[in-house]
Nucleic acid binder design. Structure first.
Lengths: 249, 249
DNA sequence: TAGTGGTCTAGACCACTCA
DNA sequence: GAGTGGTCTAGACCACTAC
């Protein structure tokens, strides 16, 4: 038939909408610019608000948009590259470490996540230090972390140390005395738990990239870090920065 | 007051639902088991179907559930660990490469994604081979990939080679002749484009982990791979498997 | 053909931000 | 207090799977 763009029919509305909006973002909007509100956009495209929201959610998932309740929807800047190796996940507390300790607690091995307990070989009856840290890049929070360290790995840390941050620093100081043999990492998709969400300035359930790092010293896993990165604003980068630097130089 | 569980109030219903369902999955369901259908679950919890779906979507995002249209919702197995370094992203085509070529095309440099073109230093007028590959682990597709190779990197590949797969193999064969100096990788969240979705047996828009690999040989970036992993079923693992192997042995 | 999840609607109210 | 995005409802119809 003579109709030029009829194939659109078999495509869900929100998917087509997403494409249209995406193109509009490229051509008609600048980074940081505020979009019309959802009710107006929905009316403009002749769809229900829920359908429009489905398209916006996809675009936010892809890092193209940023939505804030009570404020509006803005065009997001390109994702920032966040190194997740040497500087990003060096031996915790080492110079150049991008993380700041914010809290600490000492708990029983039975109350840490099962996957962590298994990696550490810790169970009920064992003592584990839990250090909460935060990572800020370019002025905005990009990650929240829980660092699990069995008491056996850092014998110098005693109950005498008072104050959460002081305790955290004591654990990190002790960790630095050990020789790091290697790290093993895994990345998977998750949704922010309430506490992490608050730290990341997002709503609970927001999509996050969960990086699990196992630190190996002396042939044993001496610490496990579970780092929760904002998936909307972060692009995690790995390895071989030396070669890339050589390219630039 | 005397009410025991009133704090629930300030929490969104779907969030609370998700918690309840998550606990139920742990205690009352086996992997692969089929859940009651959405209409029944919604009725059972006294919420609208859309609200229930919001909870199910979160659980699917976290890899706890698997939903298939026309079939039902099943309990997902734990995510599989997928190596994304030596075996997973070694020099394309090398022995032990986990990827299978499925298609190939030769396009103009102006029609590849901007980010890829920039990394390759290619633009309109240049010729770029695009090889589509697929990665299957444990019997199911885990990733789809587009491998971009400038014609200048593989001068041995000519138009004479006919057939998409044959062309793909030719490009990979040529690549192996070069010495790989290093790789630089980035991981970010994305949503599956239509073509990738089909290859991954998912619906368009499904959440995926996009791994961008830049291959460096002779101080130049000679190829760029954009690999799209199913975020629901995959946990990407990185580095230091030697140390881990030492642990096990 | 029956049953499933996927899409879509037209409303309502709530939580939050900011002037 | 006005305006925003976030949550929730009670329906309807569609696309797909499997029998």
């Amino acid at each position: 038939m003579g109709t030029t763009q009829l194939d659109t029919a078999q495509e869900p509305k929100y998917w087509h909408l997403k494409t249209v909006l995406s193109d509009a973002l490229d051509s008609e909007f600048a980074v940081g610019e505020i979009l019309p509100n959802e009710r107006e956009l929905a009316a403009r495209f002749g769809v229900a608000r829920a359908t429009l929201r489905q398209a916006l959610e996809q675009l936010e998932l892809e890092g193209r948009l940023q939505r804030r309740r009570g404020v509006g929807t803005t065009v997001a800047p390109p994702r920032m590259g966040v190194p997740v190796d040497r500087t990003g996940h060096s031996w915790p507390g080492a110079p150049g470490d991008a993380w700041q300790p914010v809290d600490a607690a000492t708990v029983d091995g039975g109350s840490v996540p099962a996957a962590v307990a298994e990696a550490l070989g810790a169970g009920a009856g064992d003592t584990v230090h839990v250090v909460r840290r935060t990572r800020v890049d370019q002025g905005q929070p990009v990650a929240a972390e829980l660092l699990y360290v069995p008491a056996g790995s850092v014998p110098g840390v005693t109950d005498a140390t008072t104050g959460a941050v002081a305790r955290a620093r004591a654990v990190l100081r002790e960790l630095q005395r050990l020789d790091l043999d290697g790290e093993e990492r895994a990345v998977e998709l998750g949704s922010a738990r309430a506490e992490d969400a608050k730290q990341l300035d997002r709503l609970p359930g927001a999509p996050v990239l969960v990086v699990t790092t196992r630190y190996v010293t002396g042939g044993r896993i001496t610490a496990v870090a579970v780092s929760t990165y904002r998936a909307d604003t972060c692009r995690l980068t790995f390895g071989d920065h030396d070669n890339l630097a050589a390219l630039a130089g």
